[in-house]
Amino acid sequence: MYKYRASKDSGSKSWVMQRITGLALVVLMIGHYILMHYHPDSGHTYQAVLGRMQYSWYRIIDLTFIVLAMYHGLNGIWNIFRDYKMKPWLKYSVISALVIFGIAFTAWGFNIIFSIPYIN
């Protein structure tokens, strides 16, 4: 029945995930803007970052934020590529590049957050 379908994956799971992560990111983004940018003097010195990072919940929010944003963003890029007909080699190259970039930058972000010391 599905002999001529291009792919077994209809993309419906990624579609739902894109909406769920998108809504979560809107909430996180509002929090991020209120906490970081409500005033030009707020939050851009090392001391301010250090102060915030003493709270573990703040670290957890930041880690969630980067994972969700990276997933949503790269899945979005992949959705753009999916609009076009690609040769298999190109398809797998694009997927590999996106996954590698995503994991590398997420790991970098995690490393940055974990490198900030707890003072006490």
């Binding site: 944003a69 963003g73 890029i77 970098w108 972000g109 490393n111 940055i112």
Partner: peptide, 21 residues
């Protein structure tokens, strides 16, 4: 969307000096 994912990479890069003190 494309601009924002590009910015996210830039954002990780620009905050990386946090590891250097």
């Amino acid at each position: 969307g494309i601009a924002l994912i590009a910015y996210l990479f830039l954002h990780v890069y620009s905050l990386s000096p946090l590891t250097k003190g």
